[in-house]
Design a protein around this nucleic acid. Sequence first.
RNA 1: GCCCGGAUGGCGGAAUUGGUAGACGCGCUGGUCUCAAACACCAGUAUUGAAAGAUGUACCGGUUCGAUCCCGGUUCCGGGCACCA
Length: 922
Amino acid sequence: MEYNFKEIEKKWQTYWAEHKVYAAKVDESKPKYYVLDMFPYPSGAGLHVGHPLGYIASDIFSRYKRLQGFNVLHPMGYDSFGLPAEQYAIQTGQHPAVTTEKNIARYRSQLDRIGFSYDWDREIRTCDPDYYKWTQWAFIKMFNCYYDYDIDKASPIENLISKFEAGGTKGVNAASSSDLEFTAEEWKSYTEGQKSAILMDYRIAYQGETSVNWCPALGTVLANDEVKEGISVRGGFPVEQKKMTQWQLRVSAYAERLLAGLDNLDWTDSLKDMQRNWIGKSQGAEMHFKAVCDGQEHDMLIFTTRADTVFGVTFMVLAPESPWTDILTSKAQKEAVEEYKNVVKKKTERERIAETRKVTGVFSGSYATNPLTGKEVPIYVSEYVLSTYGTGAIMAVPAHDSRDYAFAKAFNLPIIPLIEGCDVSESSFDAKDGIMCNSGFLNGLPVKKAITAAIDYVESKGIGRRKVNYRLRDAIFSRQRYWGEPFPMYFKDGIACPLPDDKLPLTLPEIDEYKPTETGEPPLARAKDWTYGGYPLEKSTMPGFAGSSAYYLRYMDPRNSEALVSKEANAYWQDVDLYIGGTEHATGHLIYSRFWNKFLYDLGYVCKDEPFRKLINQGMIQGRSNFVYRIVGTNTFVSFGLKDNYKTTEIHVDVNIVYNDRLDIEAFKAWMPDYHNAEFILEDGEYICGWAIEKMSKSMFNVVNPDLVCDTYGADTLRLYEMFLGPLEQSKPWDTKGIDGVNRFLKRLWRMFYDKDNCLVTDGEPTAAELKSLHKLIGKVCSDIENFSFNTSVSAFMIAVNELYDLKCSKAAILEPLLILLSPFAPHITEELYHTALGREGSISGAKLPEYIEAYTIEDNCTYAVSFNGKTRFTVDLPKSLGKEEVEARVRALEQTAKYTDGLTIIKVIVVPGKIVNIVVK
RNA sequence: GCCCGGAUGGCGGAAUUGGUAGACGCGCUGGUCUCAAACACCAGUAUUGAAAGAUGUACCGGUUCGAUCCCGGUUCCGGGCACCA
């Protein structure tokens, strides 16, 4: 019998599906284990060989955990709302639901071929109304809550209303968009409209005006993590800043908890660092400065982390968009400031980035008084101060801040050094290090102590207070698009109201065109009768991250129509034990999910504060591109080794017509009409291609389709090879030619069971050598899997099978544990051999993981190399059972009889068991 | 500019984290089988040298009997953030 992978793989995939082998059910008798993949966006291009890498890893781990006796939840679904389907719809008029459906079918068939152990009964799709009902439900909950810092969690908005009714804003310690103050009487005197406007500033899901990333080409706003270097991540279009009223989520209220929660997570440090930087906590102080404009006195508030440098303030700076700027611009400077503001406003985000460090600014015409020195300093307006961070105003200390320094140099402002011995003639001294000088009562203190002393002083004089700032901003939650979740909100006389729960889901209406309207309204404005009870419904939709923020909860109880997840299901599955996915979600999905989960936790809907206990980031699989070299101005192609003799252009060639860097010339001629009459300059009768490692993409003709690999080598080979390529978390290139090695391994495994038509499996007692091979393997593979070092596991399998093959071992007592151990990696072939060759019943996934017995792998004797000062002089075999002291004693004795002393005396014997003995001599 | 990761044969990568560097696989070379090819199998394969040996983990230095591993500095590559006061 031959290893017929096609038949075997089809047979077992059918068996698993028919017997629902991987269906997960709540089972209190077993410990649970939840393994989750980041669900894919089903794009039109289908999967390439890089996509399943993480899925294979998580599948191996899931299968391994099942063998260990865990009740494993391993679900899959689709993140199926999103821009590409909509862009396609705009171009073709096809409904996004239709293309999405088609793409999902393609993804499913590709995934199925690889043999994953998903529980497909739990599949979810974010665009399914039964699913997005719960996205809308959560949004309404957020709308109906505010964040109370006193209890440090979300709380129903009614509680806030009661507080306002009882005592106004006094004693209210809540996250809000503005710092309003009013009394209970004032509150009661407000109209409904005024009240709802005030409450809006406190809600966790709220509508508010902010400066947003507006992408004109996409016709929508984007969140910060959807923009990189002034360009939209999806599509690559320029993005500009624009003031707009948008739905937002008050993620910033959770900044401290999102930061603190990281400490207890089993994530990589680099990913935690990314989130920490994104949250951007900085501790400092707010300080009041008296400002005078045209004789009028105002109060100005700044934020600083360097309160110690207040004696070196030589000017102040306001953000152009800051409300202070209008108040503190003098009549004389009005025109200049307005002009400056206009120039800044017109710049796109991209220009701002390109011109970073180019100093611009304008004098406001007013002056501020330093509260500590009483000195007057000028107030400037400059774009290097951001309105969105801190108070939008700073005190400038050019001697100790490089940005202030550049500004001072450009505007010829004084620079006062405050640290003993520092040189500020060429650049500022930014380090928080040294002894203070020129700083009144702070003189003589080291910087770090001076910071505390300065803040203490400021607090005691009532000039300011300690303050923590976060860079994390609220998430802008509206998108002016069609293919997303509709907001379950309507506007009654201009006041935003949520739909009642029994009206959920609010499904997407049909429209005949997916573009924005001529008047610039979102596509939903095209819908007929987009109203509720006669009131207009919200016309924008939710962003991509809405649907992915709580999907891991829905998998626990995917068909529940009463709740996002039942209390029972949530209590059993709890949280995700292992989450595998790419780093690209570090500051997007992984922040939003944590926020969303914490919110639901505050309200008691989920039992865990953090959703993802352990996180692994798989690396990218890069493509290996091949090139041909066309001699300029001809249709002649010269082989790689000879190309330097000619003037050539490098052209990407489809890697599927190149074998081992050798071009299939006939296939090349047929590839594109242009090359039909191509001529070639060969070396040794062959055309050798150049190569490079690049991103896997269609345009570089280096895409390898997993279907093709499954056709030629089988899914088990694909799975093993993807793992064998290198460490899971590292980026590495795909190179199809190496795949023969793992394929050979499987064929050899097969031959251990079958020779032609004979089954070779026998009973019989295993020998010591066979047991040693097996148990070395068990020990290695189990510890590798726990460490996600799957590449070395595959090597270990190859070594063990080679050893056993050489020993001609066909004993069931050895082969059965071997198969079970290998089954997570290569489920089809092991399943087949388990049944037909070993005659076992049921699926191998129900088997028990073989136990590792160390005693089998210990060597009787062990060779020590004895060396003097690093030079090996002789080797000696000693029983492994000897203790360290005894080895030392025997070595000393040997050394004496061997007369290797050369007149030297031993000062130290270093024994490393099983390794080497070093004798240090003098 | 700041914060993280890296750097080992022709290639992907191992090395029990201070103890024989280069496991395993690819590729290459030679051989067996074959009319031939494919498959399979066997042997070799860091550099240098006829050999003994010498040299080798990006570079410079340090600690140590001993360093791919620890410490200091440099270069290059990858990722993240970027006027965050």
